[in-house]
C-alpha cells in the first residue's frame, strides 16, 4: 500500500470567506474512504482541489508525490455532484466519447454495467430519468482506469434499490491499487463499505479514522457518531 494523496497545511478562501483551514491529510491506495460533513463544510472545495479544478490559497497538494497536474489528471476519475454531459447524445455516443478521451477506458465494463441496470445504449441522455442519468455518470466514472476515484454525492438522487447497486458497483470495481473517495451526507447507506472516514467541519478535518475503530470506540454506527459530532 502506497501513499496516493498528501495534503499539507492546505488553506483555501473565497475572497474573505475561508473554505478550508489548515487541512492535513494522507490517503493510501486500496482504500474506500468516506468524506463526510454537513452542507458547506468544504467537501466539494477539497475535492475540486484534488482534481485541479481549484487551486489552494496556500499549502501542498501531492498525488503520488507530485503536484497536481497532467499526470494526476489522467489518474483521478471524478464524478461531480451535477450532471455535466451533453444531454442530446445517446449513451453509446457518450461511451465512445469517454473511450476517446481516456487512454485506457474500459468500454466493455461500461456496457456490462449499463446492461445490468437495463439502460439501453441507444437512448438519448435527455430521455433518461434523473436517477438513471446519475447511474450513467457513475458507470462512466468507474469505467475509467484510474488510481483514485472521487465521487461527489454519488447516491443522492437514486432510489434505495439502486443505491445497493451503486454500492455493489463500487465493491465490484474495487482494486487494491486504487482508492475511492466518496463524499456524502447519506452516511447510513454507505458506511458499511468504507474503510476510513474523514469528518470535515467548517473547513477543518476533525476526525480521520478506520470505521471499525469509530464503532469500537463509541459503540455506535458511524452515522450515529456523525450526528453526535455535528450536533447543534
Amino acid at each position: 500500500m502506497s501513499e496516493l494523496i498528501r495534503l499539507e497545511s492546505l488553506y483555501k478562501s473565497y475572497g474573505k470567506k475561508p473554505a478550508l483551514f489548515n487541512v492535513n491529510l494522507s490517503l493510501e491506495s486500496g482504500k474506500i474512504v468516506g468524506l463526510l460533513g454537513p452542507n458547506g463544510s468544504g467537501k466539494t472545495t477539497l475535492i475540486k482541489i484534488l482534481n485541479g479544478l481549484l487551486t489552494a490559497s496556500s499549502g501542498t497538494v501531492l498525488f503520488e508525490g507530485e503536484p497536481i497536474g497532467v499526470n494526476s489528471k489522467s489518474k483521478i476519475a471524478y464524478l461531480p455532484d451535477n450532471i455535466y454531459l451533453n444531454t442530446w447524445m445517446t449513451v453509446r455516443q457518450i461511451v465512445s466519447f469517454f473511450a476517446d478521451f481516456y487512454a485506457d477506458f474500459r468500454t466493455e465494463l461500461a456496457y456490462e454495467m449499463l446492461y445490468k441496470l437495463d439502460i439501453s445504449p441507444d437512448q438519448k441522455l435527455k430521455t433518461l430519468s434523473k436517477g438513471n442519468k446519475e447511474k450513467v455518470c457513475l458507470i462512466l466514472t468507474m469505467s475509467i482506469n484510474a488510481k483514485l476515484y472521487v465521487l461527489d454525492e454519488p447516491i443522492a438522487g437514486v432510489d434505495p434499490a439502486a443505491r445497493d447497486y451503486v454500492i455493489s458497483t463500487i465493491i465490484n470495481n474495487y482494486n487494491p491499487d486504487a482508492s475511492v473517495l466518496i463524499s456524502t451526507h447519506l452516511i447510513a447507506d454507505i458506511e458499511q463499505v468504507l474503510d476510513e472516514v474523514i469528518f470535515i467541519k467548517n473547513g477543518s478535518i476533525v476526525l480521520h479514522k478506520s470505521v471499525d475503530e469509530v464503532r469500537e470506540e463509541n459503540g455506535v454506527s458511524v452515522d450515529e457518531h456523525f450526528r453526535e459530532v455535528f450536533k447543534w
Partner: peptide, 9 residues
Amino acid sequence: ALAAGVNPN
C-alpha cells in the same frame, strides 16, 4: 463482500 454489502478490505 458483495453478499454482505461490505468493504472487501
